[in-house]
Write a protein that binds this DNA or RNA. Structure first.
Length: 829
DNA sequence: GCAAGGTC
């Protein structure tokens, strides 16, 4: 029997299909897919199915000094039992095994792991290795026709990384966690990739904090040529002879402004035109895909998760790749052909196919791992995908289109004008040849209009403006910029960079989006900078890459490299151990600072965000148990402390992070006071949640001025009843027999009027609404926009529509035909 | 309960 082992199930399925001519059948063994045809079996792993770790006697953090981990053994244990068992089972009967894992360093290591599992149960089978960089018939068949051997040196390079990362990461993580007494879920992590990434964010925050804004002025003039007006900006030549727009001296700025205001015209001194070619973008690798997806509003995590789903469904190629050069066997014409006739993409594909020559763009990175991300020839329909999936799919399709499309051409027009000794300039740009922009609408194609003027012409100045501005601090990294920067620094991989950022959120190192570092993050980076500079800088990765290269080429071996690294860590620990308490104190202080809101009104200690034993958050005093002052926080979400501070109570505002349900809670003291005030106006039990959660109904005044009867447990309970906008509301002693609520009296105008029980009042209102007809949007084909248009024409309900003249409605409502109105009328009965 | 790297 012949056994083929791939890196993942998806690859196993496709390789089986190619090699068997689509005749392979799938069977489940131990819950794992095994593809079989003739005497061949093919199984996919799930990446690494074994992991490195310390022996179990090192697992209790309190029993082991972190420094002991440096020289502890490192062993491999199966993490995917079912898969390992199934491979063993199949390997026993194999006389030939082919390792077909991904064609990159980690794939070589995963292949070696498979090799070891096989060898464990079968000493005789011949074990080959095949390499291909895309799963296409040509590549796969030729690889299997000419198999090679596992590159054990390359795999050993990967193992060196595993060992070094584990030893450094675990030893330093445990050291910091123990010295700050942060055990359990709140441990303080350090690692070769996560800590330099965190330092990027912390450094940027340091720059922002240290930033000293400088004032400058910019001066603009509106000019007119015939009917057309345009904007020009004052500039001068700086000391180095470069054009500068920012005027740093206020007096000078005012002088120029004054002089321009005096003038009524400007003379055209020069006109220059040039055309610029705007080349289409390179194919997507993971980083560039994440960047593009983030520009249309997807977080790195979301974009990757959608891409993985599209890949699993077979609509796009593997989303984790470094490659930006299409493989030779990708025929763009053939792939474009798959899109002809498609509702969304057909026209664009056909236009692209009309050209004689199609030559895709190429990026700088050509690797063997996988092809750049592109759509496959299998197209989904819009209905098969969620809106978000479709949006991301369309992005991938259009990026492919862009890479085979023509360059765009811009025409730039620069006009320099003179007003006495002063110069103005206007830069116009126009897209003369849309090229790839026609199929890839994700880049800006904004034009800037400047009319055709000629040298020597005089133009009227209609308005002069001066704007006072300030230099801005550098901006925080967004997630996709972070990922790009990590790639540039050489840290992390295509598969892990977005996870690293998620990890920083999980560990309480960063908050918000774009991410902002916590005090804890700053303290951890500071500790790293002082005692273990290697682990906070990309230098550790750079050195590791060099060492791995040396192992892969046979110049060094794994033990040598790991030994050197362990020695370096020993020296780090020499310093660390002496400062244990100092480091621990500093981290503990920063942890407290991250939770501090401001002074306690009763004892003057700090008020902190705390968590009850049941897991809910509240505000408590640091002076507890001497001071028992507390304030409540909402039950939904995780609190985030904002920079904004309440002037009255000197407390920081709080935001509750709950995904889409995120909201700003504000000052917890103000909120508690408001809730107290509400108590006076409680009118009864909440019919929605009263029985279960003791919610009560109260008369509430909202920020926007409107009022309602709402549940005291809002936003957990959203039960509400409307109240009139005007008038004082009096709660009477009479109670509604049905609902038990007091009857309300509204004082507005001369005579108070009886609103009665607010529930009965609302019921009556709803009944009146129902009488006036049913909601138009209940009709198929009528959306919110259409309903709005119809309402503007006096058709406010289904009843109205039934009674209306179709012809008149069609006349009055733009974009709606008589025929459509008749169809709706028919549906309405 | 530590890392980073695969994959889901």
């Amino acid at each position: 029997m012949e056994l083929i082992i791939t890196e993942k199930d998806n690859a196993a399925r496709r390789i089986a299909a190619i090699l068997s001519g689509d005749s392979a059948e799938v069977e489940r063994r131990n819950g794992v897919n095994v593809y079989r045809w003739g005497g061949t079996r093919c199984i996919g792993l799930s990446g690494h199915v074994v992991a490195v770790d310390f022996p179990s006697e090192y697992s209790d953090w309190r029993d082991v000094e972190p420094v002991e981990l440096i020289d502890a053994d490192v062993e491999k244990t199966p993490t995917q039992e079912n898969i390992v068992r199934t491979v063993r089972l199949l390997a026993r009967d194999a006389n030939r095994v082919t390792i077909a894992t991904d064609y990159d360093r980690e794939g070589e290591l995963i292949g070696k792991e498979a090799y070891e599992i096989v060898r464990d149960v079968n000493e005789d089978a011949e074990i080959d290795r095949v390499r291909f960089s895309s799963i296409t018939e040509g590549e796969v068949k030729s690889a299997f026709d000419d198999p090679a051997e596992i590159d054990f040196d390359l795999a050993a390079a990967g193992e060196a990384r595993q060992v070094i990362d584990l030893v450094w990461g675990a030893a330093l993580t445990r050291f910091l966690s123990l010295s700050a007494r942060q055990l359990g879920d709140d441990f303080i992590s350090v690692g070769r990739v996560q800590t330099p990434t965190l330092k990027l964010i912390v450094d940027r925050e340091r720059e922002i904090e240290a930033f000293d804004p400088e004032a400058y002025w910019e001066i603009f003039a509106d000019l007119v040529k015939g009917e057309e007006s345009f904007d020009a900006q004052y500039y001068y030549l700086d000391d180095e002879g470069n054009e500068a727009e920012r005027v740093w001296d206020e007096e000078r700025a005012e002088a120029v402004y004054g002089a321009l205001q005096e003038a009524s015209e400007a003379g055209v001194e020069s006109v220059s035109r040039r055309t610029r070619t705007d080349d289409p973008p390179a194919p997507f690798n993971t980083t560039q895909f994440i960047r593009a997806a983030s520009s249309i509003g997807y977080s790195a995590k979301r974009a990757m998760s959608i891409a993985e789903d599209l890949y699993t469904a077979g609509y796009i190629t593997y989303p984790r790749t470094d490659n930006t050069v299409y493989p030779e066997d990708l025929d763009p014409r053939e792939l474009l052909g798959a899109f002809t006739g498609n509702r969304t993409f057909g026209e664009d594909a056909e236009t692209l196919l009309e050209r004689e020559e199609i030559s895709p763009t190429e990026g700088d990175e050509e690797t063997t791992d996988h092809p750049p991300i592109h759509p496959t020839e299998e197209l989904p329909t819009k209905g098969e995908l969620s809106d978000a999936e479709w949006e991301v799919y369309e992005l991938v399709v259009r990026r492919f289109f862009a890479t085979v499309a023509d360059p765009a051409r811009w025409e730039h027009l620069k006009v320099v004008l003179g007003v006495g000794e002063h110069r103005l300039k206007a830069n116009g740009k126009r897209l003369v040849e849309p090229g790839y922009h026609a199929v890839y609408p994700y880049f800006s194609t904004n034009e800037n209009f400047v009319p055709a003027v000629e040298e020597g012409e005089s133009l009227a100045i209609t308005e002069v403006r001066i704007e006072d501005k300030e230099t801005q601090p550098p901006r925080r990294y967004g997630q996709s910029r972070l990922i790009e920067t990590m790639e540039g620094m050489g840290i992390g991989t295509k598969s892990t960079r977005h996870n690293t950022i998620e990890k920083l959120y999980d560990r309480g190192y960063i908050e918000n989006d774009p991410p902002r570092p916590t005090k804890l993050a700053t303290a951890v980076v500071e500790a790293g900078e002082e005692y273990a500079d290697r682990v906070v800088s990309e230098a550790m990765t750079a050195q590791l890459e060099d060492d791995m290269h040396a192992i892969a080429t046979g110049e060094k071996d794994l033990d040598e490299v790991a030994g050197e690294s362990r020695e370096m860590l020993e020296r780090v620990f020499d310093d660390l151990m002496e400062s244990r308490e100092e480091i621990g104190d500093h981290i503990q202080k920063s942890l407290k600072a991250d939770k501090t809101l401001g002074p306690c009104p009763e004892s003057g200690h700090d008020l902190l965000i705390r968590r009850s034993r049941r897991g809910s958050y509240f505000v408590g005093c640091d002076g507890y148990p001497d001071c028992e002052y507390t304030l409540p926080l909402p039950n939904t979400g995780k609190p985030l402390i904002l920079d904004e501070t309440c002037e009255e109570h000197d407390l920081r505002h709080v935001k509750m992070l709950a995904g889409r349900g995120t909201f700003v809670h504000g000052c917890p003291q103000c909120k508690a006071d408001e809730a107290d005030a509400e108590k006076d106006r409680i009118i009864g039990v909440c019919p929605n949640c009263g029985a279960e959660h003791d919610g009560e109904l109260a008369i509430k005044q909202l920020r926007n001025g409107s009022r309602l009867v709402g549940c005291t447990r809002y936003p957990d309970c959203e039960y509400s009843l409307p109240l009139p906008r005007r008038g004082e509301i009096e709660i009477t002693d009479e109670h509604c027999e049905e609902h038990g609520l007091p009857e309300l009296l509204v004082h507005s105008g001369d005579e108070p009027w009886e609103l009665g029980c607010p529930i009965c009042n609302y019921r009556e209102y709803q009944e009146r609404e129902n009488d006036s007809g049913t909601d138009l949007e209940s009709l198929e084909g009528v959306g919110a926009k259409t309903a709005e248009k119809l309402a503007a024409a006096g058709v406010e309900s289904v009843t109205d529509l039934k009674n209306a003249e179709a012809e008149m409605v069609a006349d009055e409502v733009e974009g709606i035909s008589e025929e459509r109105v008749r169809k709706w009328q028919a549906k309405a009965g």
